[in-house]
Design a protein around this nucleic acid. Structure first.
Lengths: 235, 235
DNA sequence: AAGAATTTTGACCAGTTGGAAAAATGTTAG
DNA sequence: CTAACATTTTTCCAACTGGTCAAAATTCTT
């Protein structure tokens, strides 16, 4: 049997995260087969698991293949290079990662908006900790793979939302303060529960370190962002 | 010349971070030579640089030796294994890392105490970002090398300080809230400026991303922790 | 059911990695 | 100055790494 040099495996590298094929003009682009779709997902899932913990350089294809339950050459049939897997994960990540911030609505009132933004971010830390860690790993390394997206897309989004916050401050609905650092503090406090999960659990101990910690965190953060730590007289 | 199986290189593994030799009983323990002290520091410095960015598995001895300006075998003469370097860095780290929290004084007033704790942590993020990233890397991996220290030393320290915070709350000097999550939020917001530095700079842009960002952060965080975001009428 | 295409496997390879051994060179206390 | 020790360099190695390739096995399509 003459191996047909696996045409579709090649195309896998030309399929963007949104699924739109963008091969060279004239290149015959077959749609992905069922197996290709399934296996690619299995691989991406496994890679997320591994990359999130060990970072790009600290992770091996063997490790990923192992978690994915297939052989290394088999994995390489779907993603011809390690970098390809990582790129796919990272570019998908940024989109979902910023979705909560996108939802912050200028027409809403500041406190409900900020409150639900914090909730959503906290839910993401709870439900997608691996994505959070993958992102953190990338940041620790100086964001080599996404620096331009950070500098353009992320910056634009934050500029826009900072504008909204400033508007609220002008209307007297929100304390006048630095909107950028405000956003940073929301990111930091929420992602902390994913990225530093071990520490959080260890410090809270078995009694308070269970799933309830996210509800406790939500309550605490709500108070912090609303009133800070100054004691208030009972209403 | 018969190589004397490099006794001192062996002892380097038996010197704890505090410099107290703790070799087996009866083992002749020579004091470190000038060169040993110097080179060990050069190596640790280089290793910090590399480990902070790529994590343990993602870093190679060659890389570290390169940054340290020596050959790999030469480096291995001082630290016979890669793990040894990492262990030294990590155990020194935890001590300095927790120093600011240790200083929080029950006899002081809550706001000055919390305020200067935040300042100190922010200064550490500014002046020792590599240490912060090394720590973050370790956390992301599930703290494999320091889990017991986290579970014992760190937990005890935090328990103690949480007790102090609770005391202040009982006295009505501090808003009643969760003292553990309060401490987490200080860690998160301050370390963010070291660990996510690229992101912070990129989002702030060239105009506001300079050194002034730490002063801005300090001002913002002070307000956040004091009053939150609720607008106050002018005094 | 057969032929074509896709998927999986096993053997392999060149470069890198952590580390060992020994020889060559420096340093220093007496 | 020199013997004893400390340091550095050179050479080497086995395991691991990312990746290739052809053959075998499986799945589709008609």
């Amino acid at each position: 049997m003459v191996p047909t040099k696996v045409k579709n495996a090649d195309t896998s590298a030309t399929i963007e995260a949104d699924g739109k094929p963008v091969g060279k003009v004239g290149a015959k682009v077959r749609p992905l087969t069922r197996i290709q779709r399934e296996k690619q997902n299995v691989i991406l899932e496994a890679a997320l698991e591994v990359f999130a913990v060990h970072g790009f350089r600290g992770s091996t294809i063997d490790q990923i293949a192992d978690v994915a339950g297939m052989s290394k050459p088999n994995l390489l049939y779907y993603f011809p290079r390690k970098e390809e897997i990582h790129r796919r994960l990272i570019s998908e990540l940024l989109v979902t990662w910023l979705a909560p911030l996108r939802e912050m609505d200028a027409d809403g009132d500041p406190f409900p908006e900020i409150r639900s933004y914090i909730r959503r971010k906290l839910e993401m830390a709870r439900d997608y900790p691996r994505e959070s860690r993958l992102f953190a790993n990338e940041m620790l390394q100086g964001a080599p793979h996404i620096i331009e997206m950070i500098e353009v897309d992320l910056k634009n989004l934050v500029d826009e939302k900072a504008g909204i916050l400033l508007g609220w401050m002008d209307e007297g609905k929100l304390a006048r303060t630095d909107p950028y650092h405000l956003i940073f503090s929301i990111w930091a406090t929420t992602q902390h529960y994913a990225d530093f999960d071990v520490q959080v659990r260890a410090v809270l101990g078995p009694s308070r370190g269970g799933e309830g910690r996210f509800e406790d965190a939500a309550r605490y953060l709500e108070q912090l962002f609303l009133y800070g730590l100054t004691p208030r007289s009972k209403p």
